[in-house]
């Protein structure tokens, strides 16, 4: 497959997803609403939390739980909508297989990054989350987001052709995301607590390694899932 052809097709798929999303705003609304509701619920329910040694861990866990469940509501959309609207055949016939995967992966990544930003801001404002090492925090969230999308996009393609899709997406993805979740929560807690790069580097490396492994495996397996 010619690389520039692949890149051009990938870009076309990505742009089309963005355009469709901006016009319908389904995923954006769902995800933003979910994030706001969750953080507000926690904030109201818990009230102001005392600063303690464990607070960064609690904040980190909350942030990642909200991201995880928001991801469950929105990240399968890229493939499910194609099946529901019956546009998959047109795409299957016209687009190179890997361009489909890469374009939709990119879209999910952008969506998740936007969500992460929103959740971080909400957590700082409503939960009084203190970020003592902002760069490490940002890198940690970015690496974790990368892992989250690479781990779930293939699953989204799988469940798009099944029934009871929304629950199935969560059921299939969750066990695979556990290593990611554990590492991300701990790493984010370290960054929130202001740990130095020497301690933050290890979780970041693990997250990136996970993302790379999921990405490469997905590339190998996607054609099998996408074919009819």
């Amino acid at each position: 497959m010619n690389n520039s052809l692949l890149w051009r097709a990938t870009k076309a798929v990505f742009v089309r997803e963005v355009r469709s999303e901006l016009r319908s705003r389904q995923a954006l609304n769902a995800v933003a609403l979910f994030a706001v509701c969750s953080i507000v619920a926690v904030s109201i329910g818990l009230g102001p939390l005392n600063r303690s040694a464990e607070l960064p861990l609690i904040h980190a866990a909350l942030v990642w739980i909200v991201l995880l469940f928001a991801a469950f509501t929105a990240l399968a959309r890229v493939f499910v909508v194609e099946e529901e609207q019956r546009t998959a055949a047109a795409l299957r016939l016209a687009a190179p297989v890997h361009a489909v995967y890469l374009g939709k992966l990119l879209f999910n990544l952008v969506l998740l990054v936007a969500l992460t930003l929103l959740v971080a801001v909400l957590a700082v404002v409503l939960l009084r989350m203190q970020v003592k090492a902002p760069t490490a925090f940002a890198v940690m969230l970015a690496a974790g987001s990368l892992g989250l999308v690479t781990g779930t996009t293939l699953i989204a393609a799988i469940i798009a052709r099944a029934s009871s899709r929304s629950t199935l997406f969560a059921v299939l993805s969750f066990p695979l995301l556990i290593p990611l979740l554990v590492t991300a929560v701990r790493g984010t807690a370290l960054a929130l607590a202001g740990a130095g790069w020497d301690r933050c580097l290890a979780p970041i490396q693990t997250l990136l390694a996970y993302a790379v492994a999921m990405f490469v495996t997905s590339l190998f397996l996607f054609a099998t899932v996408w074919e009819d």
Binding site: I158, S218, T224
Partner: peptide, 9 residues
């Protein structure tokens, strides 16, 4: 496919 993907994690 899922079986193999799960194995990688």
């Amino acid at each position: 496919v899922y079986n193999i993907f799960a194995c990688v994690t």
